[in-house]
Amino acid sequence: MVTQRESGHRPRGGVGRQLANGLGWFSIGLGVAELVAPRAMEKVIGVRDRDRRRNVLRAYGMREIAAGVGILSMPSRPEWLWTRVAGDIVDLASLGQAFALRDAKRGRVAAATAAVLGVTALDVLCGTQLSRRKPFRASATVLIGKKPEELYPFWRDLSNVVQLEPYLESVRPLADDRWRWTARIGGGPALEVDTEIVRDQPNQYIEWRSPEGSATRLRAAIRFTPAAGDRGTLVRSEVEIDGPLALLAKPASAAGIGPELRLEQHLRRFKQLMETGEIARAYRGQATQPRPRFETTRGLEPALSH
């Protein structure tokens, strides 16, 4: 079983990108200054020359240059902007220390601190913008001991997928190979998404996505590849979510309970159904009332194991 999360940012123009480029060049400029003229920089920030401090400044310079080059050369990775934010925090901490030095020019240090605070705010703003624009992508692969032609038909009729996902209330066919997905989490409101099948290669690949202009943009695909050595079929499931739902997916995924976990669970249940004719369910018959819980590392998916 392989589960992957990919950063799926499509580089685009816009304010966020422009700001990022500006910050990238700013990083490089600042870094070069700290590296080649630490003495001048010390004057600017209001501390007097000491060898040790100067080496610290040089190290900060290297860090700035790395962040700047990262931001400019890998526009699809907002992580680089977040390294800038981390650097800002280190700078602020150092300036705080400088404040306490006997030989410090307090006015200068305060001005430098204010400047860094300003830049930090820009960095955070920009990082958030870039991260937000990134659609969420996840995938999972599982080996199933059946031939592709034994597995494909299940997915050709998407209403079957209800069996794999307890939160799915229904998947109903509409006209023209469109399907309406209705999900409900807990007692919450029903969530509806329409998709249309955009690619269908029998026994190999099916892809469906929400039509142009939908608020939540969803793309999903299932791929069947014969496995080596008569072991059956590698079944890979992919999903890409953009729009407001992607904002939910990311933190959930960081907490280890995101869509990639659901995908893997779906594929496992699909495998169980195909290989054994049923989906494993545990009857707990507990003596105590099971309390409602979210999936955590403890007792994962209790809702299913009843």
Binding site: L261, Q265, Q272, E275, T276, I279, A280, S305
Partner: peptide, 23 residues
């Protein structure tokens, strides 16, 4: 389950299809 890759190898206590909390 008796039929998965591991069951067929006789490794029943590692059956892939009987643990709802496999992940």
């Amino acid at each position: 389950c008796g039929s998965c890759f591991f069951c067929r190898k006789g490794l029943f206590s590692t059956c892939e299809n009987s643990n709802p909390n496999w992940v």
